[in-house]
Design a protein around this nucleic acid. Structure first.
Length: 427
RNA sequence: UAUCAUUUGAGAUAAAU
């Protein structure tokens, strides 16, 4: 049964679900009894693949086979549902776990907190934190790092610092992940001195920064246009990478992506292009993020030919575009006043099997607004809303901006109706 | 005999106002 477990785990990683099914049947055929861990493997594999029904079925057969799902089993399911944004099912599973008398452990609570962070449900996260305390479950480094990251990302820097303090008082040592979360928070809050202070503390503790730590600081400097500091840190990374045990080609690509995006956002097209050149001559392969960043920069700079040729190059190299790529293209065409072309890209995105998302949707609406086609804008908004994608604050911002430059009575009414149809704007 | 080896948790880079 253990052998079968190994095989099923391997097939799960390779996303070959039919093979798992086949092995499972084979076990029954030869009269080999599954262990609890066998079911856990199957549940975990289906969960990672988002095959929710299959996962639930595996749980049912586990019970039918006389194995009792334990904390491990439920943790696997809870985490899978959280990562797949199936929050209702996740909560249901947590309930089931409790009514089965299965105690939650630190992994259960960490997964739940992580899920609510992803969902942006801060209040629910705090509730889980309380429950965790009541259950007498003490946070470990991972849980503390997660909490520190959540507070940092919400700009609650005082709370973040207090949590670090609490962690250290509890005798829990901060690691590289903890410090990266803190530096990222300071960087995003524009507190570069604080960020450097943490960098120094980390070095003094002889914690070697890894790629994530470098990239967090490089991107902080890139975002605010401190290009000298950005380049300096990048060169430090190049030196440090020679000594790093885990420095694959993907990580080098990520570092170059940051530089390319920083120059692109700063409209320094020449610098951006030379970074792209160096990246390739150094042997790092551009990925979907690289191309999306380039396309975005060319679109914003209204360099139509370069935007188009980058997209072609990407396809030639066999890199598949994702929602970021398509949204950047849609926005680029919109900014260039090419609404029909933007619509064509949206079609292509849907044909490629990528789901409609609020950014692509807002970009399209914005394209009509920039072209002063307000009636079309309202119509398009209605159609998009019908597809089930909820508008965001940014969408409403686009509608409001358009409303301000509206002259005709009917157009004003049409746009007002759009805004009124949004949650919280009914008045 | 020992060691290692199957299943669950944390951080960084790309899109819209």
């Amino acid at each position: 049964a253990t052998t079968y477990g190994y095989m099923m785990a391997a097939y799960g990683r390779a996303r070959q679900w039919e093979k798992i099914d086949a092995l499972f049947c084979e076990m029954t055929d030869i009269g080999l009894k599954s262990l609890g861990s066998t079911f856990n493997v199957v549940i975990g594999a289906y969960g990672k693949g988002g095959l929710w029904t299959k996962m639930e079925e595996a749980l049912d057969s586990m019970v039918a086979a006389g194995c009792t799902p334990d904390t491990f089993t439920f943790n696997t399911m809870i985490d899978a549902y959280g990562k797949g944004s199936q929050f209702r099912s996740m909560e249901r599973t947590f309930e089931r776990m409790r009514s089965a008398g299965c105690p939650g452990d630190i992994l259960t609570y960490s997964s739940l907190i992580h899920a609510y962070r992803k969902a942006g449900q801060f209040e629910k996260m705090e509730k889980i934190l309380d429950q965790m305390q009541i259950a007498g479950c003490k946070p470990d480094v991972t849980a503390y790092s997660l909490l520190i990251d959540v507070y940092g990302k919400r700009g609650m820097l005082k709370k973040m610092e207090a949590t670090l303090q609490e962690m250290q008082e509890a005798g829990c040592k901060a690691n590289i992940v903890t410090y990266t979360g803190i530096m990222d928070a300071y960087g995003k809050a524009g507190k570069y001195e604080e960020m450097e202070r943490v960098w120094k503390i980390m070095k003094d503790l002889s914690l070697q920064p890894d790629y994530s730590a470098y990239v967090a600081t490089i991107s902080a400097y890139g975002r605010c246009g401190m290009y000298d500091k950005m380049e300096t840190r990048f060169h430090e990374l190049e030196e440090a990478a020679k000594e790093m045990r885990f420095g694959g080609p993907k990580l080098g690509t990520a570092a170059y992506n940051v530089i390319i995006d920083a120059y692109g956002k700063g409209k320094l097209i020449d610098q951006m292009e030379s970074a792209f050149e160096v990246m390739q001559t150094t042997g790092y392969r551009p990925d979907v993020i690289t191309y999306s960043a380039l396309i975005n920069a060319y679109g914003k700079a209204e360099l139509l030919e370069k935007m188009d040729s980058t997209y072609v190059m990407m396809r030639v190299k066999g890199v598949s575009p994702n929602e970021h790529t398509y949204s950047a293209l849609i926005d680029g065409y919109g900014k260039l006043g090419m609404v029909e072309k933007a619509e064509a890209v949206l079609d292509e995105m849907l044909k490629a099997g990528i789901k409609m998302n609020v950014v692509a949707y807002t970009s399209i609406i914005n394209a009509y607004g920039s072209a002063k086609r307000f009636q079309d804008m309202a119509e398009r908004f209605g159609a998009l809303k019908g597809t089930g994608t909820e508008p965001s604050c940014e969408t409403i911002g686009v509608l409001l901006t358009a409303l301000c430059s509206c002259r005709l009575h009917e157009e004003v009414l049409a746009l007002l109706n759009c805004i009124r149809s949004c949650k919280g704007f009914g008045v």
